[in-house]
């Protein structure tokens, strides 16, 4: 992945000409975000008389500790989910080695906003957004797991506690609080459920919303085979409530309202305690991702934001301990 934008533009131009003909060109390229695991660029694909806004997404995390689904498989998954009519960006093409870009892929641009605080500031459409999210999630969970069998080989598709220990052990820094949480989960098992496709990063910030309409579910790099309660628990994890702590479901609604909406849209009836189990798991998981960013920083992927993640783990560990104590819900 080249670092300089002009170099990216040259390679992107070559990549689109290879696929759409010599007349195709790239215009209005801009960097959207440098996320935790990817670089996102927006650009216009101009071809003949048509102009289309597209999004390039390249993975920035690599190495043996990388827990994210390879971009090629994300692209394959996106194609399946998009074909099923679940709101997702339309996949356009995946990069290959000739492109000298990526690993990554290009999708259609989707209108809307993702920024959590902006989304939560105006509650006019929160109920409609919750309903739309639960409709999309219930349909996602109902997809034939056989069509995404390629996800089975990832640790998260197996026992979640064992998977988390594998991830943590690879990061070479002991975290007693996170291990304490895992042991608590082990001693208080959650009901076993049939595994289906789990989005894996279903939280405010990864939903593209336009008014009352959910236009896309984004960020499929954590997808795996799992319990439907896991996606609901991640949405409710305390770190993702953006300060609206009594509205467990991402600051949008209470946990009970979320579970009613999920059931009303065709999802299984799931009890609050089962979701709480996954919220505890979510705090451990978010802690692990922060340890991971600091590990990456120490390995050479330097930035102030990644560096401070290593210290920010204390926030998740504190919330975890307070939740285990019963002081937080």
């Amino acid at each position: 992945m080249p670092a300089i934008l002009s170099e990216v533009e040259d390679r992107l131009s070559r990549a689109v000409r290879r696929r759409f003909g010599e007349g195709a060109r790239v215009e209005h390229i801009e960097q959207a975000t440098l996320g935790g695991s990817n670089r996102t660029l927006l650009f216009d694909l101009v071809n003949g008389g048509t102009r289309r806004r597209l999004v390039s997404r390249e993975e920035t995390f690599s190495g043996t500790t990388n827990p994210f689904l390879p971009p090629g498989l994300q692209y394959r998954l996106l194609a399946i989910v998009h074909a099923a009519g679940i709101p997702t960006p339309e996949p356009i093409f995946a990069y290959d080695s000739t492109d000298e870009l990526g690993p990554g892929f290009v999708t259609a641009f989707v209108h809307g906003k993702t920024l959590p605080r902006r989304l939560l500031a105006d509650d006019t459409h929160h109920k409609a957004i919750l309903t739309a999210l639960m409709d999309a999630l219930a349909r996602l969970h109902a997809l034939d797991a056989g069509s995404v069998e390629f996800l089975a080989e990832y640790p998260e598709s197996g026992d979640p506690i064992a998977a988390m220990r594998t991830r943590l052990d690879a990061l070479d820094e002991p975290h007693p609080a996170l291990e304490f949480g895992l042991r608590w989960l082990e001693r208080h098992p959650t009901p076993a459920r049939a595994k289906g496709l789990a989005h894996g990063d279903f939280r405010i910030g990864n939903f593209m919303v336009d008014g009352a309409v959910v236009t896309a579910l984004l960020d499929w790099e954590c997808s795996h085979l799992g319990s439907p309660a896991e996606d609901l628990g991640w949405l409710c994890t305390r770190s993702w409530r953006f300060g609206r702590l009594n509205l467990h479901a991402g600051g949008l609604a209470t946990r009970d309202a979320l579970l009613d909406a999920y059931c009303a849209q065709g999802g299984a009836r799931i009890e609050a305690d089962e979701v709480r189990w996954w919220e505890i798991y979510g705090l451990i998981r978010w802690g692990m991702y922060n340890v991971l960013q600091a590990y990456g920083h120490m390995q050479g992927r330097k930035s102030p934001a990644y560096a401070v993640c290593g210290r920010n783990v204390a926030m998740m560990e504190y919330d975890l301990m307070m939740t285990l104590k019963g002081a937080y819900d």
Binding site: P176, A177, A314
Partner: peptide, 30 residues
């Protein structure tokens, strides 16, 4: 020790120990 269950018998004391260190870290961080 937590992973093998060796701390299960002293769960409350282990909680207090970890909580104490977590508070000290968080007091520095945020």
């Amino acid at each position: 020790e937590i992973r093998t269950g060796a701390r299960d018998e002293t769960w409350g004391a282990t909680f207090d120990l970890i909580m104490h260190r977590t508070i000290a870290r968080l007091a520095v961080v945020r």
